[in-house]
Write a protein that binds this DNA or RNA. Sequence first.
DNA 1: CTATGTGAAGTGTTTCACAGCC
DNA 2: GGCTGTGAAACACTTCACATAG
Lengths: 210, 210
Amino acid sequence: MQWAGKDVPKATIMRLSLYLRRLRKLSREGAETVSSRQLADAFGLTDAQVRRDIAYFGQFGYPGIGYRVGELAERIRMILGTNRRWQVALVGVGSLGRALLGHRGFALKGFHIVAAFDVDPAKAGKEIYSVRVYDMTHLERVIRERGIQIAVICTPADVAQNVADKLAGARIGAILNFAPVTLDVPDTVVLNSVDLAIQLEQLSFQLARR
Amino acid sequence: MQWAGKDVPKATIMRLSLYLRRLRKLSREGAETVSSRQLADAFGLTDAQVRRDIAYFGQFGYPGIGYRVGELAERIRMILGTNRRWQVALVGVGSLGRALLGHRGFALKGFHIVAAFDVDPAKAGKEIYSVRVYDMTHLERVIRERGIQIAVICTPADVAQNVADKLAGARIGAILNFAPVTLDVPDTVVLNSVDLAIQLEQLSFQLARR
DNA sequence: CTATGTGAAGTGTTTCACAGCC
DNA sequence: GGCTGTGAAACACTTCACATAG
């Protein structure tokens, strides 16, 4: 993964999100500064790793002091791109889709679900948690008109690839896929998949040999 | 990560789940054999990687032929431990918890949600998708009586650590956590966390520099 | 004293390339 | 021709250890 010409490990970006979550908590608790050691201990990492992760993006620390909580949080937000507002669409208003529509936390982090889509004509036209549900036929138009950059797929597995194709055709920037299939998308689209059953399988593997 | 004394990369276990998902599909389509190249192409990997991943666990392939779909799937199920039945509890019956309770796919892969827990007295005693909801006070007893090994946390962030402590006290084997906090658990408990907002942040990072 | 930032060393993971086999 | 399994090389990531700074 690249940032300002440098090669940054994918795992570092993941940890940056964890650090940011921790910094929000420290900020709420009134902490002014935090050391790499303190951050490391919270996640079972080494202090060197935390410093290396942060140093990929510049020199934000103060020797003898640590990092200023508010400043580091703001820097990480800039790096992750969550200091700006992202418009998000959700496709597939089943029970998982509904749960995500109702989740307040996303908007606080800059992700605003502004439209939902479903094939079921009974759902089209309704509003769920004040998000308008459209028929799939309006997908391309609404994505263009509302400047939507990210889509979340919550459909059954068998239609997910078809939905991904439509999204790619509508010039979506990124897809977060919850359907349990591996999607094929053009490299104009950033793809991230979460398969809940696979998460359970990873636990099973570790439990099985004990 | 260890298997039969050998060190296996964590990423390999992750890919094994992906291979298994693909093998199920190939099996439905009637395929008898599959080559490392075919599996690799489906996920954007190299054929060498697929062979290496599988070879950590033995020699299941047939030179000149590939792997037998049914046999490899069964082997991977044994490795992942999903050839047996796992009893799962769900804690926190909010909208995400409900969505997971209603999800058919888990049982097919060996994960049976047999109990749910919530603090809300209005929910206790009810059945949701034929899963009984208990009050939190019965957590330890029900986990013991029903032989539950895996728990899924779907509570708000501020109570998740408290729930994790209770689960650890009830000798749970593994936790899948959906609350957006880093949990601290004793090393008798296997922990896996999925933070949906963090998944969106990873997309944001990649979108922001284009 | 505390703590960052970073070359160098160490460790882990992926890819190459080919022997062996169908 | 097809294909797997695997040493060895290449690459990627993490940790060590210390110069530098408050």
